[in-house]
């Protein structure tokens, strides 16, 4: 009887410890680092910024060009050959504010949003 009680106590302890560890893992995990790069609705790249080495990506659309730069876990458009440069001016990607190049139908945005923001006005 006592032995079986001990056994169940041990099982409960293991489950408790396991769930505690799982909670800690879930809470400390850094989601929201995944970024999608889409063109005209098609996904070209899905990138985890926390794992991605610094690099540039060149994307062309009907002969026009955007150069995307990933640096230190952040992403922005470094160069665009359109004259208005709205996408370059948007700066580094932040939650809720997609980087958009309208003429080239290019969009860079976070895949999941864990910031508590539902949208950004601006």
């Amino acid at each position: 009887m006592i032995r079986s009680q001990k056994f169940w106590a041990a099982v409960c302890a293991v489950i408790f410890a396991g769930s505690l560890i799982w909670c800690i893992v879930l809470l400390t995990m850094k989601p929201g680092d995944t970024v999608t790069i889409t063109q005209d609705g098609k996904t070209l790249y899905t990138i985890d910024l926390s794992k991605e080495p610094d690099r540039t990506i060149e994307i062309t659309y009907e002969g026009r060009k955007n150069i995307i730069e990933i640096k230190g876990g952040r992403v922005h458009i470094l160069e665009a050959d359109c004259p208005d440069k709205v996408c370059v001016n948007t700066g580094w990607l932040t939650a809720g504010i997609p980087i958009v190049c309208l003429p080239n139908k290019l969009v860079i945005e976070y895949a999941d949003n864990d910031t508590g923001l539902d949208a950004v006005a601006g």
Binding site: G91, W92, A95, V120, A121, G122
Partner: peptide, 24 residues
């Protein structure tokens, strides 16, 4: 709904406004 207000001088937002059934 939590709507961020974009920072006009830098990347990111200056703050958040919480709304129901509104335009921002």
């Amino acid at each position: 709904w939590n709507i961020g207000i974009r920072d006009p001088g830098a990347d990111g937002i200056v703050g958040t406004v919480s709304v129901e059934d509104r335009s921002v």
